[in-house]
């Protein structure tokens, strides 16, 4: 099993396509960081507009808000919506790409069971996803920390401003990246399932992207009819729950409780739903694959 996994990882990391995602992530992060470095204050003005009447909003204050933690949080907000597309690039190719190259039959006529083959393939996609996230963490989190320094993280929500002191942030990022890994694995699992049905990789990649885009739009739509009926069941609604790690609890006087999470059960529930989707997608993929004629 381990040997097979090594082969899969070798294949993934030997192909140029794999690095598109790493390059894309780096480009987006770099552009955002550069933008924030030179014009971050204008970006903040937009957000701070609604508090500038009641509070002192000096340049020094804005500069403090624009710290590495904040920059990373803003990057994740933008990027984690796009990352599924990058994950689909590899996971969607996983089986279909082999079918297209004619190597799938060669592989399946080796002494490897189909279930084993599928699990190895999927695991390789997950590892790729995790490595992509580690890369993101390196440049978006640690990179921003180096460029912008660290300070209290201020998270602007629609109705509240959540603040957590610098020492209370890092673990939240670890948790958020962990959650993001699960969220992206869900997309990988979907792409993987679609990959089983196709003979070339373009189909599953585009299909995955389309599904994720449509469902994300549905999740973001504010139509009361959908709020209770459809949205709670869409995996895309739960993919953004990593943000929950940055929503804190406060005591009655409004003081942030260090180390607290505002609604941990909601996060865990979302995570449970994602895990259920992963099992459903991967389980179906393996089932279909086992039945399939090659």
């Amino acid at each position: 099993m381990w040997k097979l996994l090594q082969i899969e990882l070798f294949k993934i990391f030997k192909r140029p396509r794999t690095y598109i995602a790493f390059g894309a992530v780096a480009a987006i992060v770099f552009l955002f960081q550069a933008g924030m470095k030179f014009d971050g204050k204008s970006y903040l003005d937009l957000i701070l507009n609604s508090v500038s009447d009641s509070f002192e909003v000096s340049d020094d204050f804005k500069g403090r808000i624009l710290n590495g933690y904040f920059i990373c949080f803003a990057i994740l907000n933008i990027l984690l919506i796009q990352m599924p597309l990058l994950v689909a690039l590899i996971a969607g190719d996983s089986i279909a790409g082999e079918a297209n190259m004619g190597t799938l039959r060669l592989s399946l006529s080796r002494p490897v069971s189909r279930t084993e083959y599928m699990l190895v393939k999927f695991t390789a996609s997950v590892i790729y996803t995790v490595i992509l996230l580690i890369w993101l963490a390196l440049i978006a989190l640690f990179g921003s920390m180096i460029i912008f320094g660290t300070n209290t993280l201020v998270v602007f929500r629609a109705g509240t401003i959540e603040m957590m002191e610098a020492g209370d942030v890092m673990w939240r990022y670890f948790a958020a990246f962990g959650y993001a890994a699960v969220a992206l694995t869900t997309v990988a699992a979907l792409a993987f399932l679609l990959s089983v049905f196709a003979e070339n990789s373009i189909g599953p990649i585009i299909a995955t992207m389309s599904i994720v885009i449509v469902l994300t739009i549905l999740s973001e739509m504010n139509i009361p009819l959908y709020d209770k009926t459809i949205k709670p069941y869409l995996f895309t609604s739960h993919m953004v729950a990593w943000k929950g790690f940055f929503y804190v609890k406060a005591d009655p006087e409004g003081t942030t409780i260090r180390g607290s999470i505002h609604n941990l059960p909601a996060i865990l529930k979302s995570m449970g739903i994602l895990v259920a989707y992963i099992m459903l997608f991967v389980g179906s993929a393996v089932w279909v694959f086992r039945k399939k004629i090659f």
């Binding site: 294949k11 030997k14 190259m101 004619g102 039959r105 060669l106």
Partner: peptide, 12 residues
């Protein structure tokens, strides 16, 4: 076994 005409892993 060799089945049909495999393209193999072209990038390897």
């Amino acid at each position: 076994a060799v089945i049909e005409r495999p393209d193999m892993y072209k990038y390897l």
